[in-house]
Design a protein around this nucleic acid. Structure first.
Length: 708
RNA sequence: GCCAGUUUAGCUCAGUGGUAGAGCAACGGUUUUGUAAACCGUCGGUCCUCGGUUCGAAUCCGAGAACUGGCUCCA
């Protein structure tokens, strides 16, 4: 199974040959790093050392625990190897020769060693029969490697080791744990430095840090739970602006809004196919209960006993009855199944007087003892209880929306039906996955489902893409790519619903749209949703970091499972196609992204604090003038506040700048006399005094147009 | 979930076995000010939690929680 997966992900030689220049540099640098590590620790066992998005790594098994303090000496050795400018020599060998060299410890080594190159043996076994086997050699270092590489070690322009982490051999936790040494390399020093500048900038823009400083959100792990962010007022302001944006654009595009509950019965997800297996581990465990019943094996007796106990307070019990209650309490505590009712107890029961309170006691006693004594009675009681219901927190909105589709008969004239909702979804992310706002367990989705006739798919899908591009423009996202994920025919019925023709058909439709619309996309096999092909939208922030923000999926399977139909022109029932789309993804992740993108300096329309009016001193007439300015803005739904205290104006400005208030209006005696305000923009400084009316109008216009 | 590291005041962080600290914030007062921080004072702590070692634990050990960096997964 694992090796199967491994095979599926294994790069073909053709794909490898497509390695970019930068990837070759990085991959070669990994070999140089291995060379250096072997000089320092000759017994190191290497596993895999590929180029990755921001550099490269090499997995190594080594007694010594490599820490960043070791980096300088490793880098020293690496520099020596680069300076020696050795040729990367490709050597093609037979499988037998390779196995022999691996056994002798020569592969991933500088010379033959006492221990065999155990991971290289494993790697060798993964190479399919018939594929050529090659080494790459630089100096003494020989590695099992398909390449390609740069010509010489000297072609590695600039590099640096960055971190060390742990990783399992072949990514499988059953395999030994290795030390993964990360580094990065570039054509030249300038590019290397630019990269580290970007990394530094990303640290400064970390959404968790800025979110804390600006008071946007809080994660209260003790009372609310990990991965369940609380939106503070300033963060909620951003959420609301995004919702407003989506509502406006979706309204214009013919969407209708719906609202659905946060939970649903198990049947919902058994029908959708998320349960029992496909999505179960991403969902919170269910809430289980019986309708209007106490739970527990003695629920019925318990309730009667409670009645008896409350009745007891109002009446006087004789000695006998008191004994009975006590006796019952005692039995109740023991609760030993299989205990038979004693003759004595029976007699007491039989001899009880029959007034109301005593009857209740009697009843409780009898019921309890029956339950206690005879398991078969317990089972009978169980059968008489209502069945246990299981409710799940929704991890996605689509099943609820499908039920909305099903709630009324649909004609082809009703289509496309575009149902939009801001639902909160709950996903049980593994604890190690949680990360600020970027990976959470409660997700606010800008979600919608479009039900359409298959022949209208192209049109609808195009419209969705247009919507995405519109949003990119508003947020100033210049670089994006649509990752088009398709299915793997080998995993039908397991990871993907078993509908081979529909998969091919819908994937072709999506591909055609992407091609003909000229949208920038890449195709990724084997990563589709279980119900259909998927498009993940990747965008790059202002500092060039990549984020997966939005998703867009085609669903040909689940509407069918729910039996959704519309009456077509030819008077037959047909199943609609469903497009899932969430252009702003989750508000959590999207805002996390925006924080980095804008470094917390949001455009006016998004800024949590749009305007702050600062008075120079606290003379009452001045404060009145300032307050009337704030009131005028707030009447127009501008998030404006005032700082009317006695702090020096420099201090008020420093506070406002630190809070990243977009527009500061400074008001002194001079301004008041001229019916003006002095405008200062965050990060841009003083832009001078202007008539108050003009400033207000400009602010309102900038907000309305969502200017960057 | 797995591996490693971290956790001290609201925030940022000092404090390596002997009385728990600083700056900022908050609060009280003084200051009446023109574009990034005026002064004085006060308050604030279960040193993540539980257990152990010790005459004595923020500090050493063990378990747990949360966070961070990776792995796997993903919006």
């Amino acid at each position: 199974m694992e090796s199967d997966k491994h095979q599926a992900e294994r790069k073909t030689l053709d794909e490898r040959a497509k390695m970019t220049e930068l990837e070759r540099i990085r991959h070669s640098c990994a070999h140089v790093m291995a060379t250096a590590i072997l000089r320092l620790w000759p017994d190191a066992q290497f596993a895999a050392g590929p180029p990755v998005e921001n550099g490269f790594y090499y997995d190594v098994d080594l007694q010594h625990r490599i820490s960043p303090e070791d980096f300088p000496k490793i880098e020293e050795e690496m520099k020596r190897e680069i300076k020696a400018n050795r040729v990367f020599e490709k050597i093609v060998v037979t499988r037998e020769q390779a196995m022999k060299d691996a056994q002798s410890g020569r592969l991933g080594g500088l010379r033959e060693r006492p221990a065999p190159s155990k991971f290289k043996i494993g790697n060798l076994e993964d190479i399919p029969e018939g594929e050529p086997i090659s080494y790459f050699k630089n100096g003494d270092f020989i590695d099992l490697c398909a390449g390609p590489h740069v010509m010489r070690t000297g072609n590695i322009g600039a590099f640096r080791l960055t971190s060390v982490a742990s990783a399992y051999y072949k990514g499988d936790e059953k395999n030994p744990q290795l030390q993964r040494i990360y580094g990065t390399a570039f054509k030249n020093k300038t590019e290397l430095e630019a990269y580290f500048t970007m990394v530094e900038e990303a640290k400064k823009r970390d959404h968790r840090k800025i979110g804390q400083e600006m008071g946007l959100f809080a994660i209260d792990t003790e009372f609310v739970g990990p991965g369940l962010p609380l939106w503070l007022p300033k963060g909620a302001a951003i959420v609301e602006e995004l919702e407003r944006l989506a509502k406006e654009t979706e309204f214009a595009a013919g969407y209708v809004r719906v609202k659905t509950p946060h939970i649903a019965k198990e049947k919902m997800y058994l029908t959708s196919g998320h349960l029992p297996k496909l999505y179960a581990e991403s969902m919170f465990p269910p809430m289980e209960f019986r309708e209007k019943q106490l739970t527990g094996e003695f629920a019925g007796a318990e309730r009667i006993y409670q009645q008896a106990a409350s009745a007891k307070q109002d009446i006087e019990l004789d000695e006998e009855e008191s004994w009975l209650i006590e006796h019952y309490n005692e039995l109740r505590e023991k609760r030993t199944p299989g205990t038979e009712l004693s003759d004595e107890s029976r007699e007491y029961l039989a001899s009880l007087p029959s007034d109301k309170a005593k009857e209740a006691v009697n009843c409780a006693m009898e019921r309890f003892l029956v339950d206690l004594g005879r398991l078969s009675m317990k089972d009978k009681a169980e059968a008489m209880l209502p069945p246990i219901e299981r409710y799940y927190l929704k991890a996605m909105n689509c099943p609820h929306h499908h039920r909305i589709f099903a709630a009324e008969p649909r004609s082809y004239r009703d289509l496309p039906l575009r149902l939009a909702e801001y639902g909160t979804n709950y996903r049980y992310e593994q604890s190690g996955e949680l990360f600020g706002l970027m990976r959470v367990r409660s997700l606010n989705m800008n979600d919608a489902h479009i039900y359409c006739q298959p022949e209208k798919f192209t049109e609808e899908f195009n419209a969705v893409n247009e919507l995405y591009l519109k949003y990119f423009k508003i947020f100033g996202l210049e670089k994006y790519v649509m990752r088009f994920s398709t299915h793997d025919p080998k995993r039908l019925g397991e990871k993907f619903v078993n509908e081979p023709e529909l998969w091919i058909q819908t994937e072709n439709m999506v591909r055609d749209v992407l091609k003909s619309s000229g949208i920038n996309y890449v195709e990724v096999p084997n990563e589709a949703a279980f119900y259909g092909p998927k498009i993940d939208v990747q965008v790059w922030s202002a500092i060039g970091r990549e984020f997966s923000i939005a998703t867009n999926q085609v669903d040909f399977a689940v509407p069918k499972r729910f039996g959704l139909v519309y009456r077509d022109r030819d008077n037959t029932d047909k199943t609609p196609l469903c497009i899932h789309r969430a252009p702003l993804g989750t508000h959590e992740r999207f805002i996390g992204f925006l924080i980095e993108h804008y470094a917390g300096n949001f455009p006016l329309w998004l800024a949590p604090e749009q305007v702050r009016v600062l008075t120079i001193g606290d003379d009452p007439p001045l404060v009145d003038y300032a307050k009337s300015t704030v009131a005028e803005l707030r009447d127009n739904m501008v998030r404006a506040s005032g700082d009317y205290g006695t702090d020096p104006i420099k201090a008020k400005i420093a506070n406002a700048e630190q809070a990243k208030v977009h527009t500061m209006l400074v008001i002194g005696a001079r301004d008041m006399a001229a019916h003006a305000v002095s405008v200062r923009l965050h990060g841009k400084g003083n832009v001078g005094a202007k008539p108050k009316g003009q400033v207000v109008a400009e602010i309102l216009a900038a907000i309305k147009e969502r200017l960057a």
